[in-house]
Amino acid sequence: QIFVKTLMGKTITLEVELSDTIDNVKAKIQDKEGIPPDQQRLIFAGKQLEDGRTLSDYNIQKESTLHLVL
């Protein structure tokens, strides 16, 4: 699992595989929060994550926290 922190300070827990693409992750956030993926920007280690890449491409591990910017 990974964590996604919103600017409102809310933390969302997502069940993911490290082979999941950023697209997949955004879809899971949409399922939980109702935010359309095209409005989501995910940040990790100061970098904006690109849709076609996977979590492992960015060296994101289990229990990592991503930041969601709208």
Rank of each mutant, 00 (worst) to 15 (best):
E63I: 02
E15L: 09
G52K: 02
P37M: 12
R53V: 12
R53F: 05
Y58E: 15
Q30H: 05
E50W: 12
R53W: 02
S56P: 07
N24A: 11
L49Y: 01
Q61Y: 13
T11D: 13
D20H: 06
P37L: 12
F3Q: 04
Q1I: 14
T6E: 09
L18M: 05
I43M: 13
S19P: 04
E17C: 09
Q30L: 10
T11C: 08
L42W: 11
I12E: 02
L49T: 13
D31L: 07
A45V: 10
K62S: 12
Q61V: 12
L66A: 14
V25G: 00
D20T: 10
G9D: 13
L14W: 00
I35Q: 03
I12V: 08
T6R: 02
I12A: 06
E15F: 04
L42D: 00
G9M: 02
Q30T: 04
N59K: 12
V69N: 13
L49V: 13
A45R: 14
T21H: 08
T11S: 11
R53Y: 03
F3N: 09
I12T: 08
K47G: 14
R41N: 14
T13L: 12
A45N: 15
T13V: 14
S64F: 10
V69P: 15
G46H: 08
E50R: 15
K62C: 10
A45W: 07
D23H: 02
L7F: 11
H67C: 03
M8H: 13
G9E: 14
F3E: 05
T21Y: 07
E15I: 04
Q1E: 15
L14R: 00
R53G: 12
N24L: 03
L18T: 03
R41Q: 14
F3D: 07
S19K: 03
Q48N: 08
V69Q: 01
L42P: 00
K28M: 10
R53D: 08
S19N: 07
T54P: 06
I22C: 07
L14N: 00
I43F: 14
E63S: 09
T13W: 03
V69L: 12
T6N: 08
I12F: 10
G46A: 04
G52Q: 10
A27Y: 05
V4N: 00
Q48Y: 14
D23G: 08
L55K: 00
L70A: 15
S19D: 01
V4E: 01
V69S: 04
Q30W: 05
P37D: 13
Q39H: 03
T11F: 06
I22W: 01
D38Q: 04
Y58W: 09
M8A: 12
K47M: 09
D20R: 11
T21Q: 11
R41I: 13
D38G: 07
E33D: 04
D23S: 05
K62E: 14
F44Y: 02
I43Q: 15
D57Q: 08
E50Q: 07
L68V: 01
E15R: 06
